[in-house]
Every structure is written in C-alpha cells, then in structure tokens.
C-alpha cells in the first residue's frame, strides 16, 4: 500500500489541458475589461490606430490626470456617489440588521407575508419605482437631494440585505440566544451583544453589497437628480458621453475609475461578495 497518491499521467495531462482552456476562456471573457484599461492608458492619437495597439506603449496616465482628476464635474460626481453610497449603506445596516434577526430568530406574526414582500420587491424594475418616486419626491421637495437618492437606493438595498442576512441569523444557535436571555439579556440586548457579533461575515457582505449597489446605481440618479450638483458619477458619465464624442481614452479612464472600487472590493472581499450576491439572487 503506497501512502502517496500518485496522479496518473492521463489525469495530469487532462488537468493541464483543462487549466490551459480555463485560462484562455477567462482571458477571452475579460477582453472588454482589458480593453477598457488598455484604451484608458493610450494617447489621444493612438486610439485611432488601425489596427489598434494591443498594448498601450508607452502607457500614459494623461487621461486620468486630464479627464478624471482635473474635471470638476467628474470629481463632484465621484463625491456625490460616495455620499449616496455611504448613506445608503448606513441606513440599510441600521434597518436591515434587526429586521433580518427578527425574521430569523423571533416567532413573529405574519412571517411568510413579510418574507414574501421582501422577495417580491426585489423583482420590481427600478423604472417602476423611479417614475412614481419622481412625482412623489417632486411634491415633497426631495428631487435633487442626497436624502431623496438615499431613500430610493435603500428601497432596493434593504430587502436585498434582509434576504442575505437572514440565513446568517438562522445559523446562530437558538441555545446561544436563549442562554443570553437567561443571563439577563432582553430581546434587544440578546440581539445586540450576542447575535450581531456572531453574524459578522453577513454584515461585511451586506455592507459591501449595499455600497457597491448604490455606487453603480444609475436609474434613480438619472430620474431623481436632474441638477448637475447632485448627480452621481454614473449619471455624469452618461451625460459626458456625448460631449466626449470620440475621446474614448478619456471615457475609458472615467469608466475605469468608476469600476476601480468595485473591482478592488471584489478582489479583497470576493468570498463575501459572491456569497451575498448568489444568496440574494436565489434564496427563498
């Protein structure tokens, strides 16, 4: 009996072949992302080269310097998106954390109805909310305000957050919560001191997803922020598209800056993002 598992040559060959095809497929699939970065590092004149240069040599950060960081509109858009995304994340955490706990751990009445409500609203098209919100917010003076945009973003973020968080609380053993109550915790302190710390991975997931969701959100920004001063970067990008015309390198630089926080968070917190998004998409 040999203790060392020897991988047969046939399997090794098969694996190598699979690894190569996996690599090729991944590269091909992400050509659009590469092309965005490639173009963003090109000189204005080089983007019209036929055939196009596959590598921007020498790479230049001119687009980033000129189009992104010297442009007041872009800078303001980035700040606006940051404010909206942070606000959305905070409000979402504040409201969704106790709700998810309540729906998971407390035998509350109307449970199936509330669960169904949170699931169905995730299927609602953003346009369906953006139109009535515009009308309602107009009379409430909330159009062109951070508050209005945060309210709108939370309408999408909170149901998703509750759906993602509930399984984390379901996995907190009932005994632990009961023990806390015997030790003198009431319903709220049992949640705050015991269940909340135990659901930290879920909180990270929800924080990331709420932030990224609001950061990339477009429809609400388009409908509810007609004033340049309040527009998120996604809307600014869509508005400068025509003005930029064929300045693709600048446009790709702006796109890359919008994508950067998303890709960075994704790389560092991949586990949380993927878990959250798939749960949110499929959990019942």
């Amino acid at each position: 009996m040999s203790a060392v598992a020897v991988v047969p040559a046939r399997i090794r060959r098969q694996r190598r072949w699979l690894a190569v095809s996996g690599l090729v497929v991944t590269i091909v699939y992400l050509i659009p992302v590469y092309w965005m970065l490639n173009t963003s590092f090109k000189e204005a004149g080089d983007i019209f080269a036929v055939p196009p240069d596959l590598v921007p040599l020498p790479p230049t950060v001119a687009s980033y310097v000129d189009a992104v960081f010297s442009d007041a509109d872009i800078a303001r858009g980035l700040v606006n998106s940051g404010i909206i995304a942070i606000g959305t994340t905070l409000v979402t955490l504040l409201i969704a954390l106790p709700a998810a706990y309540g729906l998971a751990r407390l035998q509350i009445p109307l449970l199936p109805v509330i669960l169904m409500l949170f699931l169905i609203v995730q299927m609602v098209p953003s346009v369906n909310l953006a139109l009535p919100m515009f009308v309602l917010f107009s009379s409430a003076g909330l159009v062109n305000s951070y508050v209005g945009l945060i309210i709108a973003n939370c309408a999408l973020a909170i149901p998703l957050a509750v759906t993602i968080l509930r399984p984390y609380y379901l996995s907190v053993p009932t005994e632990v919560v009961e023990a806390a109550k015997i030790d003198g915790c009431n319903e709220f302190t049992a949640f705050w001191r015991v269940a909340l710390p135990m659901s930290r991975p879920g909180m990270v997931t929800v924080t990331v997803i709420s932030f990224l969701g609001a950061w990339g959100e477009f429809v609400f920004g388009l409908a509810l922020a007609t004033d340049d001063a309040i527009q998120p970067i996604t809307v600014v990008l869509s508005e400068i598209t025509n003005a930029y015309g064929v300045r693709w390198n600048d446009l790709m630089a702006v796109s890359a800056v919008i994508a950067l926080p998303v890709i960075a968070t994704f790389i560092f917190l991949q586990r949380y993002v993927v878990a959250g998004l798939t749960e949110g998409a499929t959990k019942t």
Partner: peptide, 26 residues
C-alpha cells in the same frame, strides 16, 4: 407569536411599504 419581535422587523417593513409598495400603488 412574539408580538414584541415585530419591533425588530417593523422599521424595515414600514420602509419597504412606504418606498416600494406605496409608489407602486401610486
């Protein structure tokens, strides 16, 4: 049934009712 537990869920339920269900009905 834990009626007090509804306090945990009420903010979210009211929020969704006010910002999703009401606009849709409106």
């Amino acid at each position: 049934r834990n009626w007090r537990g509804l306090l945990f869920v009420a903010p979210a339920a009211i929020y969704v009712a006010a910002t999703v269900v009401y606009p849709l009905l409106y």
